[in-house]
Design a protein around this nucleic acid. Structure first.
Length: 154
DNA sequence: GCCAACGTTGGC
DNA sequence: GCCAACGTTGGC
């Protein structure tokens, strides 16, 4: 069992959108490091922190889980998609996705500010200087600490 | 293989 | 809207 954090701009796709849809293919990831996490490391049932980025209050807005094995991202072959990649070979797809299932929305999001302030989180990919990864690993200890923050406000 | 130019991410 | 940080591209 592993844990992850996945970023989404709520204007494009929010935790409420995931709540409505139930399961969503996490397409459009076009970074090799993030691709490797999706394709090689994620397993069905892994925990996902759903993070809202590029918004008024960035932070963890909800919980999701990996709903299935990685599969090629169909948008890379779709000429009309913003994520079309003409250089990706059909027989060896470059970009992969996993399906993500809604678990619950946090009554009180755990803000980036809170995450930065909590020194107990230690070395955390999210708050590393210059980090731009949209899919990143979270340790079991970090997962617990972050959910504790959500609980404190309950 | 180097590196400048460019595009993107994402906080502020 | 600004800008720092970073990944990618392409000329040489």
């Amino acid at each position: 069992m592993h844990y992850w954090l996945m970023k989404s701009e709520p204007d494009a796709f929010s935790i409420d959108d995931l709540a409505r849809k139930g399961v969503e293919p996490w397409d459009g990831v076009r970074n090799y490091q993030a691709r490797n996490f999706l394709r090689d490391a994620m397993r069905t049932g892994d925990g996902v922190l759903f993070y809202h980025s590029s918004c008024e209050t960035p932070g963890v807005a909800g919980i999701a889980e990996v709903a299935g094995a990685a599969r090629p991202d169909p948008t890379q072959f779709d000429r009309r998609s913003a994520h079309y990649d003409p250089d990706s070979p059909r027989e060896a797809p470059r970009w992969w996705l996993v399906d993500v299932r809604f678990v619950r929305k946090l009554a009180h999001p755990v803000t980036l500010e809170t995450l930065r302030r909590d020194r107990r989180l230690g070395d955390f990919a999210l708050t590393r200087r210059g980090n731009r990864l949209s899919v990143l690993p979270v340790s079991a200890a970090q997962w617990r600490l972050i959910l504790d923050h959500a609980q404190e406000h309950a």
